[in-house]
């Protein structure tokens, strides 16, 4: 049976497709701000830091979004606190905090649940998305996209020039923590699709691909969302057809898109750059 027939036939596949499309859009869009602010490591950190929250939520029998957002944001605050109140630099602080949170998460989950759950949380199992998870993902998605639309101006200027933003009175610290909260929410929404370990790839790779193609932030946002969706849908296809973990296939598709762009991007691609400079050298020699 073809993938398309299967989509029409199986409700679980429709839910998976809808969820992973939304995750692709969200990761692409938030990822743009993450890489432009030089916070790629932070994305990795937050995604790992949600693990203890997920474990605690299981134990308490509440939806895992709640616990995950809580530990994600707490870790972001902890990272900021250590780096601002000591000579420990931000990347070091990130390394300390997120590994600690992740380790704690592994211990908690191992205590409470079987290791198959841990495997799904770490690597994603989009085909097991429950209706409630899908609705939460869509809700989070709508919320995040509309805040980014509304605060686009402030996000642009504070990402580009924090000095000017502070000089005219933007609360740049709050904007930072607000973005960290959005990042945590996106991570949690992506848990089932790509899993904790690979969320960072979905945050960074589509955004980085878009970054190679444009000089305008709003175009970059659309492109990154587009690459995120393409990766999710094609990745889901491979996952379903060959019975592979969806996180891995989705990430590999997005990596493929990146490599193609890296080689062939009109302005920043490796191929055209080399060709142009070679041509120039030849012209000078003759």
């Amino acid at each position: 049976m073809s993938f398309i027939d299967a989509v029409f036939q199986y409700g679980f596949l429709q839910k998976a497709l809808l969820t992973s499309t939304m995750v692709g859009i969200l990761c692409g869009v938030i990822g743009c701000f993450i890489i432009l602010r030089g916070m790629a490591l932070m994305g990795d950190a937050i995604s790992h830091a949600v693990l203890p929250g997920v474990a605690i939520s299981y134990a308490l029998g509440i939806n895992f979004f709640l616990g995950a957002v809580l530990t994600g944001v707490l870790t972001a605050i902890g990272i900021g606190f250590v780096s601002q109140n000591s000579r420990i630099k931000n990347d070091i602080s990130i390394g300390i905090m997120f590994t600690a949170a992740f380790a704690l998460g592994i211990v908690l989950i191992t205590f409470m649940k079987s290791s198959t759950d841990l495997y799904h949380i770490l690597f994603g199992n989009v085909l097991a998305v429950r209706p409630s998870d899908m609705w939460i993902t869509l809700g989070i998605g709508m919320f995040i996209l509309s805040t980014i639309y509304l605060f686009y101006k402030e996000l642009l200027i504070s990402s580009f020039d924090s000095t000017m933003s502070a000089a005219y009175g933007l609360p740049i610290k709050w904007i930072h923590y607000f973005l960290m909260t959005l990042l945590t929410m996106v991570t949690v929404a992506s848990l089932q699709t790509v899993g904790i370990v690979l969320v960072v790839a979905m945050l960074i790779t589509p955004a980085a691909t878009a970054y190679l193609l444009t000089e305008r932030l709003w175009i970059m946002l659309y492109l990154a969302a587009g690459f995120g969706v393409i990766s999710s849908v094609i990745g889901l296809y491979f996952s379903f057809t060959y019975n592979l973990p969806s996180g891995a296939t989705i990430v590999l598709v997005s990596t493929f898109l990146f490599i193609v762009t890296f080689a062939f991007s009109p302005k920043h691609g490796l191929l055209w750059r080399t060709l142009k400079s070679k041509r120039k050298k030849k012209a000078l020699v003759h």
Binding site: L36, G38, L156, S159, F160, D161, S162, T163, Y211, T214, E215, R216, L217, I219, M220
Partner: peptide
Amino acid sequence: NIDWDFPI
């Protein structure tokens, strides 16, 4: 102290 590669 801005990123000169920023897409702007």
